[in-house]
Measured scan of single mutants.
Amino acid sequence: NQESVVAAQLIPINTALTLVMMTTRVVSPTGIPAEDIPRLISMQVNQVVPMGTTLMPDMVKGYA
């Protein structure tokens, strides 16, 4: 089963992602794949992401 990127903390809107903000977990439905974490660093979220929420492609500016 593929791991997806999950918020390790509350991420406010327009925050640039850092490694410490993200963790990985096997979730359903699947979100952004864990191997894309290096690509996500410094990208901004376009909404508030509560802790434990799976990051979906449409939540990250410039990802999709």
Score class of each variant (00 low, 15 high):
residue 22 M to G: 00
residue 45 V to E: 00
residue 32 I to W: 03
residue 19 L to W: 12
residue 16 A to E: 12
residue 59 M to A: 06
residue 49 V to T: 05
residue 42 S to M: 12
residue 40 L to A: 01
residue 49 V to I: 15
residue 55 L to P: 01
residue 23 T to F: 07
residue 11 I to A: 00
residue 17 L to H: 00
residue 4 S to K: 02
residue 33 P to E: 05
residue 41 I to E: 14
residue 30 T to V: 10
residue 26 V to E: 08
residue 60 V to C: 03
residue 17 L to K: 00
residue 9 Q to F: 10
residue 5 V to G: 01
residue 10 L to C: 04
residue 54 T to F: 02
residue 32 I to A: 02
residue 44 Q to G: 04
residue 38 P to H: 12
residue 31 G to K: 02
residue 40 L to D: 00
residue 64 A to C: 07
residue 1 N to E: 10
residue 52 G to T: 05
residue 42 S to I: 02
residue 31 G to C: 03
residue 57 P to M: 06
residue 42 S to T: 06
residue 11 I to G: 00
residue 40 L to T: 02
residue 38 P to Y: 12
residue 47 Q to C: 04
residue 15 T to V: 08
residue 27 V to L: 05
residue 6 V to R: 03
residue 25 R to L: 08
residue 48 V to F: 11
residue 32 I to Y: 03
residue 53 T to D: 11
residue 58 D to A: 11
residue 30 T to M: 14
residue 53 T to L: 09
residue 5 V to Y: 02
residue 46 N to E: 07
residue 58 D to Q: 13
residue 50 P to D: 09
residue 12 P to L: 05
residue 15 T to R: 08
residue 46 N to G: 06
residue 63 Y to T: 05
residue 8 A to L: 10
residue 16 A to F: 12
residue 35 E to A: 10
residue 54 T to E: 02
residue 63 Y to D: 04
residue 31 G to V: 03
residue 39 R to N: 10
residue 40 L to F: 02
residue 48 V to R: 13
residue 47 Q to W: 04
residue 37 I to G: 06
residue 2 Q to G: 13
residue 33 P to S: 10
residue 64 A to V: 14
residue 54 T to H: 02
residue 39 R to C: 04
residue 21 M to D: 11
residue 20 V to E: 13
residue 30 T to N: 15
residue 24 T to Y: 06
residue 44 Q to A: 10
residue 15 T to S: 14
residue 41 I to T: 10
residue 5 V to A: 07
residue 56 M to P: 01
residue 3 E to D: 07
residue 37 I to M: 15
residue 3 E to M: 11
residue 17 L to P: 02
residue 55 L to I: 14
residue 55 L to E: 00
residue 1 N to M: 15
residue 25 R to A: 08
residue 48 V to H: 14
residue 49 V to A: 03
residue 15 T to M: 09
residue 36 D to A: 11
residue 17 L to G: 00
residue 58 D to N: 14
residue 1 N to K: 15
residue 50 P to I: 04
residue 51 M to Y: 07
residue 60 V to K: 01
residue 40 L to V: 14
residue 13 I to S: 09
residue 55 L to A: 01
residue 9 Q to I: 09
residue 29 P to F: 04
residue 22 M to V: 10
residue 45 V to P: 02
residue 47 Q to H: 08
residue 55 L to D: 00
residue 54 T to I: 07
residue 34 A to T: 13
residue 53 T to V: 13
residue 5 V to I: 07
residue 37 I to D: 01
residue 45 V to F: 02
residue 39 R to F: 07
residue 35 E to K: 15
residue 53 T to K: 10
residue 41 I to P: 03
residue 54 T to D: 01
residue 11 I to Q: 00
residue 23 T to K: 08
residue 47 Q to A: 07
residue 35 E to T: 15
residue 47 Q to D: 12
residue 44 Q to V: 10
residue 34 A to K: 08
residue 12 P to F: 04
residue 15 T to I: 06
residue 57 P to Q: 12
residue 36 D to I: 06
residue 3 E to C: 03
residue 23 T to G: 07
residue 62 G to E: 13
residue 27 V to H: 04
residue 58 D to C: 05
residue 40 L to G: 00
residue 36 D to Q: 15
residue 26 V to P: 11
residue 62 G to Q: 11
residue 34 A to V: 09
residue 33 P to Y: 12
residue 38 P to G: 14
residue 8 A to Q: 08
residue 26 V to G: 15
residue 29 P to D: 05
residue 49 V to C: 03
residue 17 L to M: 09
residue 59 M to K: 02
residue 44 Q to H: 13
residue 14 N to R: 07
residue 10 L to I: 08
residue 47 Q to K: 12
residue 8 A to H: 07
residue 46 N to V: 13
residue 30 T to S: 14
residue 36 D to H: 10
residue 26 V to Q: 15
residue 17 L to E: 00
residue 7 A to V: 03
residue 21 M to F: 05
residue 11 I to S: 00
residue 5 V to W: 02
residue 40 L to Q: 00
residue 20 V to N: 10
residue 7 A to P: 01
residue 9 Q to S: 08
residue 36 D to R: 15
residue 35 E to G: 09
residue 39 R to W: 05
residue 45 V to H: 00
residue 12 P to I: 03
residue 23 T to I: 05
residue 20 V to I: 08
residue 57 P to A: 08
residue 52 G to Q: 05
residue 38 P to L: 12
residue 31 G to P: 00
residue 24 T to F: 06
residue 2 Q to R: 14
residue 45 V to C: 04
residue 55 L to G: 00
residue 19 L to H: 15
residue 64 A to E: 14
residue 6 V to W: 02
residue 25 R to P: 01
residue 37 I to V: 08
residue 61 K to V: 11
residue 35 E to V: 15
residue 18 T to G: 08
residue 59 M to P: 01
residue 38 P to N: 09
residue 40 L to S: 00
residue 51 M to I: 11
residue 22 M to H: 00
residue 56 M to K: 13
residue 36 D to L: 11
residue 54 T to V: 12
residue 18 T to D: 10
residue 15 T to Y: 05
residue 31 G to Q: 04
residue 28 S to I: 10
residue 30 T to R: 15
residue 37 I to S: 07
residue 61 K to F: 09
residue 16 A to I: 05
residue 3 E to G: 15
residue 31 G to H: 02
residue 15 T to N: 05
residue 26 V to M: 08
residue 58 D to V: 09
residue 12 P to C: 04
residue 56 M to Q: 13
residue 33 P to A: 09
residue 44 Q to T: 11
residue 47 Q to F: 04
residue 30 T to K: 15
residue 18 T to K: 09
residue 58 D to P: 08
residue 43 M to Q: 08
residue 28 S to K: 12
residue 57 P to N: 13
residue 55 L to S: 01
residue 46 N to P: 02
residue 9 Q to N: 05
residue 14 N to T: 05
residue 7 A to T: 08
residue 55 L to R: 01
residue 52 G to N: 08
residue 39 R to T: 14
residue 36 D to M: 14
residue 35 E to W: 10
residue 54 T to W: 02
residue 53 T to Y: 09
residue 8 A to M: 04
residue 27 V to C: 03
residue 7 A to D: 01
residue 48 V to A: 15
residue 16 A to R: 10
residue 55 L to Y: 01
residue 17 L to Q: 00
residue 23 T to S: 09
residue 16 A to Q: 12
residue 1 N to Y: 10
residue 61 K to Y: 12
residue 19 L to I: 10
residue 19 L to Q: 15
residue 32 I to T: 02
residue 60 V to W: 01
residue 47 Q to Y: 07
residue 48 V to C: 04
residue 9 Q to D: 08
residue 5 V to Q: 01
residue 59 M to C: 03
residue 36 D to W: 10
residue 64 A to K: 03
residue 5 V to D: 00
residue 35 E to S: 14
residue 16 A to L: 08
residue 19 L to R: 11
residue 52 G to C: 04
residue 27 V to M: 07
residue 51 M to T: 06
residue 41 I to A: 07
residue 8 A to R: 10
residue 9 Q to A: 10
residue 13 I to H: 11
residue 34 A to R: 12
residue 33 P to D: 05
residue 30 T to Y: 14
residue 33 P to R: 14
residue 2 Q to Y: 07
residue 60 V to S: 01
residue 64 A to Y: 08
residue 17 L to N: 00
residue 3 E to T: 14
residue 36 D to C: 03
residue 64 A to D: 14
residue 55 L to T: 01
residue 18 T to H: 06
residue 10 L to H: 15
residue 32 I to G: 00
residue 39 R to D: 06
residue 44 Q to E: 10
residue 32 I to E: 00
residue 32 I to F: 04
residue 12 P to V: 04
residue 12 P to H: 09
residue 4 S to T: 05
residue 27 V to P: 01
residue 42 S to V: 03
residue 26 V to F: 10
residue 14 N to C: 03
residue 62 G to P: 07
residue 10 L to T: 09
residue 12 P to M: 13
residue 30 T to I: 14
residue 22 M to W: 02
residue 46 N to T: 14
residue 7 A to W: 02
residue 24 T to K: 14
